[in-house]
Design a protein around this nucleic acid. Structure first.
Lengths: 351, 351
DNA sequence: ATAACGGTTTGAGACGTTTCAACAACGCGG
DNA sequence: CCGCGTTGTTGAAACGTCTCAAACCGTTAT
């Protein structure tokens, strides 16, 4: 990469000073028009405004932010830009930010702690007002560092960050697991496979716990009734790969109901079933988690647990704004409720 | 929203000056260590470096950029953050940017010209070094304005921006349509429905033209052989809604092959077919466009035209860097080739 | 006539960094 | 011992904006 000399091209870009000259007032007045219009008299204000229009002036946020200490952008640090869950959230954040005139700086941790660290550092350098972060692991020290640098943050989908460390928005994963479990039990499935155990990931663990609760509620022993299968990664490929293992079940009886930690796994799993000539829900009932757009498009429609992703994003941004505007704000954790969406991938148990 | 006084909290944040004091050198030297390490003597450099480490100094990009005129962020303006096509592209851009230490500012036009305009303005204010833009319509005047403000840009997936206005990266849509057409013809389908005509969108028009070329090649009259159906929007819902209309075809004969302008349409269409008890590919062969991740997960697997999305993003970013580093660079347009992926949603014609 | 007072405007620093000309220190050949 | 080039270091002036205290100016109260 050649280290080119890439400096501001022309000698004097149109700045607040040029506008001031053109309108016959002082720079300070122009600044006032821009930032506290109430302070400046009607007639001068219009004069300045037309000067701004004529010169096609746009504010230089560097100068502005440098002086005022206020930043006009916020960070969004996600694990994987490609993940449909995040993209919905991102849209919520983006919409909310747009209303406040904030720009969203998107960074991708790619699930790597090292890259997360680099990105947080970048955010600190960029002096963002705040950041919405999906932490890559349980180690919050980097986030605390960010806080010390004066950057507020809100944790996304990680309700477990301890209360007095930061705000968070998340969806009640336990409730989601519970709803899925109740649904399957209502259909008569007293034996269920949970597909996706990777308990390092909090969300998965909670969904599993919710499922167990449903069985306990029903007077069944979770340890007996739930077949737990661990996956290296929570993607479609793993879901497909593990089909045979699931079908055997260990108990001898064939598995009739599967609850997947997310929709992608469910899709992979269903693909695997199809290859083996098994039908959903005739042979196996499948419940997913996330309600991706495709869940409603595939055949059969996937019964799944929906999360208010867009709302989640908006809420995250709102909490962040609150933090930023009043540094003394107490930390808040907002928890949303998931919703079971019944489609055609589940049906009543029959032997 | 309360207009709180939210100023820089502490009196003197650790800046280059504090580091200088702590290391017993001048601020200029610290700056040199940061930007041109070769210039400064080994011993002083280490001295400064440890001061930086001890004080946990992070560079303030406002001050830096203000003075140097160099920006450390680029914009990415998309039509819809949620669109899987863009998210892949975004990942490419993000990866490439990360390597250069650039931050990506993500903005969403939501298909609205007015919001695009606002976003471009925001980018100008943020003084980004450049932007990757998917223009919302054919009106390039706002982009030219951006250029006048000193912000370079690269058009994404819009090869039609005229040569001497800006760079672009795109995928050869005509070739994609051609490949799809040849594939269907090779299977014996001499009559095909094109689903998605909304020719305001350049990509769609070109895919259609490619399809026509395939028929012409084969000695068939495109006007006779291709049934063109227009959709208000290119989404799954529209794809589903239009099923009956497609099946009738007008010619009396039942449609046996459909080429959809994108995968989402294809998915919706297939859902509609399923509801009517028709099988893919037995009753109707379906070809999509985009190769979304789900195309390989659903049953039957969707035959579709894949675009090198990730590469597209990387290339866009590379072109942008070139523009930024040497303002004199000639505009370049990079065109990628799509690839037909054969799965199970197409089969030989039989009556 | 003076003082006090709102409503407006403005001069003169900051903010944190980079840059560049100038300076210091040093060794070296003449 | 003097100039001279080389290598490191630095003082001071930007960059574009915001902010604050001070100045200005017609009014009105004293």
């Amino acid at each position: 990469m050649p280290k080119s000399t890439n400096r501001t091209p022309r000698s004097s870009r149109t700045g607040i000073t040029q506008v001031a000259a053109h309108a016959g007032v002082s720079p300070a007045t122009v600044s006032n028009v821009l930032n506290r219009p109430q302070l400046v008299a009607e007639t001068t204000r219009t004069k300045v405004e037309s000067a701004i229009a004529e010169l096609d002036y746009v504010r230089n946020s560097f100068g502005s932010s440098l002086r005022s200490g206020r930043s006009t952008s916020v960070g969004l640090l996600v694990l994987d830009v490609t993940n449909p869950f995040f993209t919905e959230v991102a849209r919520g954040i983006e919409d909310e930010a747009a209303e406040t005139g904030l720009a969203v700086v998107l960074l991708n941790s790619a699930e790597s702690p090292e890259r997360q660290r680099r990105n947080l550092r970048l955010l600190a350098e960029q002096q963002v007002a705040g950041a919405v972060v999906m932490p890559v692991d349980d180690d919050l020290s980097d986030l605390l560092w960010l806080q010390r640098q004066g950057v507020h943050w809100v944790a996304l989908d990680r309700g477990d960050v301890s209360e007095n460390v930061g705000s968070s928005v998340s969806v009640d994963n336990r409730a989601g697991g519970l709803a899925a479990g109740r649904h399957l039990l209502a259909l008569g499935h007293e034996r269920v496979t949970f597909l996706g155990g990777a308990f390092a990931i909090e969300q998965v663990r909670l969904r599993y716990e919710g499922l167990r609760t449903a069985f306990t509620e029903a007077g069944l022993d979770p340890d007996e009734s739930i077949n737990l299968i661990s996956l290296a990664q929570l993607n479609a490929h793993q879901g497909e790969r593990v089909v045979d293992q699931v079908l055997l079940d260990g108990s001898g009886k064939r598995t009739r109901a599967v609850f997947c930690a997310n929709d992608q796994i469910a899709l992979g799993f269903m693909k695997g079933l199809g290859k083996r000539g098994l039908r959903v829900p005739g042979d196996v009932s499948v419940v997913g988690y996330d309600d991706l757009a495709v869940a409603d498009l595939i055949h059969p429609g996937l019964t799944t647990v929906a999360q208010p992703k867009y709302e989640l994003g908006r809420a995250a941004m709102q909490l962040l704004s609150a933090q930023v505007e009043g540094s003394d704000q107490p930390y808040e954790r907002r928890i949303f409720q998931p919703r079971l969406i019944m489609r055609d991938s589940t049906c009543a148990f029959r032997d």
